Simulated scan of single mutants.
Amino acid sequence: MVDRIKDTFVSAGHTIYPSPIEGEIGKHPKVRLVSVVGVPDAAKGHAIYAEVVPVAGEQLKASELKQFLRGKLPAYNIPARIRIVKDIPLSPVGKALHRAVQDNFGKRQGAKR
């Protein structure tokens, strides 16, 4: 498994590598772009969180993606939270900015309080 060390995290005792999860989600025909990150979780240490941009004109639900991933990934690698978004912040070379996705999650959690 090759992932940047700062992108890996531990969830419920499992070391999680975002790249293979992003790869599997990206195989769904309605997915245009995906970013997977770890977010704080009181029970697990971190939970797997994915932001997904659908292909233009397509409707996509988190439940549809979770069903798609069953059997393709171990259960502990299926994101606990999936959010369908219009866009994901990208670097100048077109890669998802994972830190920005984590920050967006944190801002939404703070707004719920």
Rank of each mutant, 00 (worst) to 15 (best):
Lys44Gly: 03
His14Asn: 11
Lys44Tyr: 11
Val52Ser: 06
Ile21Val: 15
Pro54Ser: 05
Ser35Pro: 08
Ala12Phe: 06
Lys72Tyr: 01
Val85Trp: 06
Gly110Cys: 00
Val85Ala: 12
Ala100Pro: 03
Ser63Gln: 10
Leu65Cys: 11
Ala43Asn: 09
Ala111Asp: 08
Ala100Val: 09
Thr8His: 00
His46Pro: 02
Val93Trp: 05
Asp41Thr: 02
Lys112Cys: 01
Leu73Gly: 09
Ser11Tyr: 10
Arg70His: 14
Ser91Cys: 05
Met1Thr: 09
His28Asp: 00
Asp41Gly: 04
Lys30Glu: 11
Ile21Asn: 02
Gly71Arg: 05
Ser91Trp: 08
Pro18Ser: 03
Arg70Cys: 06
Ile25His: 09
Ser11Gln: 03
Leu65Phe: 07
Arg32His: 09
Pro18Thr: 02
Gly13Cys: 11
Tyr49Gln: 11
Asp41Phe: 03
Leu90Lys: 09
Pro74Phe: 06
Pro79Ile: 13
Arg81Cys: 08
Arg108Tyr: 07
Val10Ala: 09
Tyr17Asn: 13
Asp87Arg: 11
His46Gln: 13
Ser11Leu: 07
Gln109Glu: 13
Arg99Met: 11
Ala47Pro: 10
Gln109Cys: 03
Gly110Ser: 05
Lys30Ser: 10
Tyr17Ser: 14
Phe68Cys: 14
Val39Pro: 08
Asp87Met: 06
Ala96Asp: 04
Pro40Val: 12
Val37Leu: 08
Ile5Phe: 01
Lys112Phe: 02
Gly23Ser: 15
Lys112Ala: 14
Ile84Tyr: 03
Ile82Gly: 03
Ala56Glu: 14
Arg83Cys: 10
Glu22Thr: 07
Met1Ala: 10
Val55Tyr: 04
Lys86Cys: 01
Val36Ala: 06
Ala47Lys: 12
Arg99Cys: 10
Gly110Glu: 05
Gln102Val: 06
Ile48Pro: 13
Tyr76Trp: 14
Gln59Lys: 12
Pro29Met: 06
Ile78Ala: 00
Ala100Thr: 08
Val10Pro: 13
Gln102Lys: 14
Asn104His: 07
Pro20Tyr: 02
His28Asn: 01
His14Val: 08
Ala80Ile: 01
Leu73Glu: 01
Thr15Glu: 02
Gln67Pro: 00
Tyr49Gly: 12
Ala56Tyr: 02
Val31Ala: 04
Lys61Ala: 15
Ile82Glu: 01
Ile84Cys: 06
Gly94Asp: 01
Arg108Val: 14
Pro92Val: 10
Thr15Lys: 04
Val85Ser: 07
Gln109Ile: 13
Val10Phe: 12
Pro18Tyr: 00
Phe105Pro: 07
Gly38Arg: 03
Glu51Gly: 12
Ser63Ala: 15
Lys61Asp: 15
Phe68Gly: 05
Asn104Phe: 02
Thr15Ser: 04
Tyr76Asp: 00
Asp7Tyr: 15
Thr8Trp: 00
Ser91Ile: 00
Lys107Ile: 14
Arg81Glu: 15
Gly110His: 09
Val101Met: 04
Gly57Pro: 06
Arg113Lys: 04
Gly57Leu: 12
Leu60Cys: 10
Ile78Pro: 00
Gln102Met: 14
His46Ala: 11
Val36Phe: 11
Gly110Tyr: 01
His46Tyr: 12
Asp7Ile: 00
Val36Thr: 08
Val10Leu: 02
Ile21Gly: 04
Val39Met: 03
